[in-house]
Design a binder for these strands. Structure first.
Length: 204
DNA sequence: GACCGGATTATG
DNA sequence: ATAATCCGGTCA
């Protein structure tokens, strides 16, 4: 994808990334997954975003130029793959939470830890460019319907935990969790009386 | 320098 | 429900 594709706020980018292909060329072989679940993390003002602590060694790539990878270790054993958005210094990124296997993939790809394992991605790819090279984002097939929910695992973030920043291809069988209540129409404003029940809390 | 807890997953 | 397992951020 072109640089301009990535240079948008994380919420927009999270939505646009759905359906695109995550490609990893490794030792002559190729692995391809179609992105079906993403979450937006929107810089220092987002209480759930790693950028809230400012620029540190760990968040170097997060604050780097758009179109690059930000990969970090979580819970001491899983790597999470993110696509940096907006602009250098802004700390916007999109967590890729699930892909569906397209080519060369063995094992499950639902969930941020599983997908990095299945695609052979790790912190070794932190900061790598995603336009050309061994790891790339390429055009794919956009979802027919997109579900929108709160982000997973960010209960500590206060009010920001409820922001509708998670995007799911509602038609995919390879998402990490069942699509929840909020369904986003391809391009329309929410229904008039859309004061529905609040987003579902994390499942006990 | 110690301690806390996490953008998770596998297992009981 | 809880262990596994590392390390960044916090505070002393």
């Amino acid at each position: 994808m072109k640089r301009s594709f990535f240079a948008r706020d994380a919420v927009t980018l999270a939505r646009e990334l759905l359906g695109t292909h995550l490609v990893h060329e490794i030792e002559g072989s190729v692995r391809i997954g179609r992105i079906v679940e993403t979450e937006a993390y929107c810089g220092p003002d987002d209480a759930a975003c790693h950028a809230r602590f400012g620029r540190t060694e760990r968040t170097r790539a997060l604050f780097g130029p758009p179109g690059h990878a930000y990969v970090f270790l979580i819970y001491g054993m899983y790597d999470c793959f993110n696509v940096v958005g907006l602009a250098e210094g802004q700390g916007h990124a999109v967590l890729v939470r699930a892909v569906e296997p397209v080519f060369g993939i063995a094992g499950r790809t639902d969930g941020p830890g599983r997908l990095t394992r299945a695609m052979g991605l790790s912190r070794a790819h932190n900061g790598i460019g995603l336009q050309r090279g061994p790891v790339r984002i390429e055009p794919g097939t956009a979802p027919v319907r997109t579900a929108i929910t709160a982000r997973v695992g960010v209960a500590y973030a206060g009010d920001d935990a409820d922001l509708p920043y998670r995007f799911v291809d509602a038609g995919s069988a390879h998402v990490s969790r069942p699509a929840a209540r909020l369904i986003g129409r391809p391009s329309s404003t929410p229904p008039a009386g859309s004061a529905r029940s609040p987003l579902r809390r994390s499942p006990r």
